[in-house]
Simulated assay, not measured.
Amino acid sequence: MEAGEFATDLRRRVHEARQALRVAESESDFYAVDVRTGELNSLLRMAAENGVTIEPAATDRGPTEA
């Protein structure tokens, strides 16, 4: 996987994790909230370690190109 593909895929996964977290929160599924929060934190840490810029959740409009 090329660097641009990696960044695009990582942004997509962050977007999906944020969506899943919102659903879990709206359903008051506390276990799923914990799982999704851990998943999101892991993805954000991976992005930071690899220099991939991730937009803040408030402006999350889906994955973008690298």
Rank of each mutant, 00 (worst) to 15 (best):
F6M: 06
D29A: 04
E55I: 04
R18Y: 00
D29G: 04
E55C: 06
Q19I: 11
G62A: 06
Y31R: 15
F6S: 02
G62T: 05
L10I: 12
H15I: 07
S42R: 14
V35I: 08
E55V: 10
L10E: 10
E27T: 05
R45A: 14
L21M: 04
V52K: 10
E16R: 11
V52S: 04
A57G: 04
E5Y: 13
R45W: 13
E55H: 07
A48N: 03
R18G: 00
T37F: 11
R11S: 12
A47K: 01
T64W: 06
E55L: 09
H15L: 05
A7Q: 01
L43V: 09
D29W: 01
L44M: 09
L10V: 08
A17Q: 05
R61P: 03
S28Y: 15
V23N: 09
P56T: 04
I54V: 09
P63D: 10
V33G: 03
A3F: 04
I54A: 06
V33Y: 08
E49P: 00
E49V: 03
E25Y: 07
E65S: 14
E65F: 12
A32V: 08
S28R: 14
A66Y: 00
T53G: 03
P63I: 02
T8D: 12
A57H: 03
T8V: 07
T37I: 08
R13G: 08
Y31A: 15
L43K: 04
I54N: 00
H15K: 10
M1A: 15
G38D: 09
E39P: 00
R36D: 12
G4N: 11
A58L: 09
D9T: 01
A66D: 02
A66G: 03
E65R: 14
S42K: 13
N50Y: 04
L21D: 04
G51V: 05
E16P: 05
A7N: 00
